[in-house]
């Protein structure tokens, strides 16, 4: 049984559905990458999984239980975490407070998790008392990921973690993602740097018009000439 299972999901923002039958399944050991053209519904898929978009048909299960249309404050304690594409830090709060907010649903002592996050992103330790709004784009992305990790998720959802970052930072963020995955957190991410991301993905999904076009391992998708031609820019 996969950790997360999205089955024939249809849904949207109230008007015509944006998702028209999306299927995704991921193990906890996987790094899943969703690619596709702009407006394909990639972000919407993550939001549907995280209860931010209404699912009108189909089902989503997580760790064996049904979570279709469950809300974030129920999902986070179950082990699901989400880093949105934009506005993903509390700009007026310090780095450490941002991380604490990620642990809001936890009732236990989260200091070891905090140390773990600082370990992973040493600059955050350095800037722990600085306001998140004063950080650079790459550092903010680290705060956002750190915040999401504070709830000790089993599956981390990332929406374009590399968007707007310089190539050096893109590489660094990807390395961290792999490291997070190695420590036992499943990853499901949307990426524009498709080729680069698929290279380390164990599962790849190509979405277009709210539907799966291709599904396979990362390597398979890169190798597929059709995918390469239509979605990876030749």
């Amino acid at each position: 049984m996969a950790l997360v299972e999205i089955k024939d999901v249809v849904g949207g923002y109230g008007g015509a559905p944006i998702l028209n039958g999306v299927n995704i399944s991921i193990e906890q050991s996987d790094i899943g990458v969703i690619v596709g053209p702009n407006g394909a519904g990639k972000s919407t898929t993550l939001k549907a999984l995280f209860g931010l978009v209404k699912v009108s048909s189909g089902s989503i299960s997580f760790a064996g239980g049904d979570i279709t249309n469950a809300l974030p404050d129920k999902l986070v304690p179950k082990g699901l975490s989400f880093v949105p594409q934009e506005k993903n830090v509390f700009t007026s709060m310090s780095v450490e407070e941002n991380l604490e907010m990620g642990a809001f649903t936890r009732k236990d002592d989260f200091s070891t998790t905090l140390d773990w996050v600082y370990d992973m992103f040493p600059v955050l330790l350095e800037k722990r008392n600085q306001k998140a709004g004063e950080l650079s784009g790459g550092q903010r992305q680290m705060v956002a990921m750190g915040r999401a990790l504070m709830s000790q998720p089993r599956l981390l959802l990332l929406d374009e973690p590399s968007a707007g970052l310089s190539p050096r930072y893109v590489l660094e963020i990807f390395e961290q993602i792999v490291k997070i995955n190695k420590s036992g957190v499943g990853i499901l991410m949307v990426e524009q740097n498709a080729r680069q991301a698929l290279a380390f993905a164990s599962r790849g999904f190509v979405l277009a018009n709210g539907q799966n076009r291709f599904t396979g391992t990362g390597a398979e998708l890169i190798a597929d000439p059709d995918v390469a031609k239509s979605f990876l820019g030749g």
Binding site: F50, L52, L71, P72, D73, L75, V76, P77, F82, P84, K87, N88, V89, F90, T91, S92, M93, E97, M101, G102, F104, T105, R147, S151
Partner: peptide, 16 residues
């Protein structure tokens, strides 16, 4: 404060 700063992100963080 988090919710006043960014209500959507507060919700995403699992804040009630």
């Amino acid at each position: 404060r988090a919710m006043a700063d960014n209500a959507d992100l507060a919700q995403v963080s699992g804040i009630n």
